[in-house]
Amino acid sequence: MKTDIILCGVGGQGILSIATIIGEAAMNENLYIKQAEVHGMSQRGGDVQSNLRISSEPINSDLIALGGADVIISMEPMEALRYLPYLNKEGWIITSSAPFVNIPNYPELDTIMADLNKMPNVIIVDIEQLAKDNGVNRSANVILLGAAQKALGIEYDKLEDAIRRVFGRKGDAVVEANIKALALGRAAQK
């Protein structure tokens, strides 16, 4: 088993908490993990990404090669497109539909959506709205994770268990909200 994942978004959107859950699930399965993160200046509202690799065999490089990623999980639609050269032919894009506009030259949203829909395997979810409608406002990123479950090749139950372990010390209410968010994401998968 080997899955190479690019997690991306804008600094401050919380891509690393998605990585933490996937990492926890993978570690519990005794898989090898490498996760390259971006810290420092670019976190201040710039584009951020993390390369997450999980595998049943030892992993060499911390970075994913061009054309190597199985999944792009993006908290922002334009950011998903930034990493296309890294996606493999059968790779999946799972992205939030909500643009984060903090630059003056942000392209027309229609253009971005058209570019995304040109890709062979793409799931676009309005995670912010879904989260709001279902009273799990602070777990929008976990909805995205749920929508990526099949593409990740990790069993649904394993992700649920990982959420229990990661959020356990924050109390039952937080755990339940995140499990609900994960289920919402699963329902949004194709």
Partner: peptide
């Protein structure tokens, strides 16, 4: 690379 993607520098 997707030509429509704009750079997003930190701020």
């Amino acid at each position: 690379s997707c030509e429509d993607v704009a750079p997003r520098p930190p701020a």
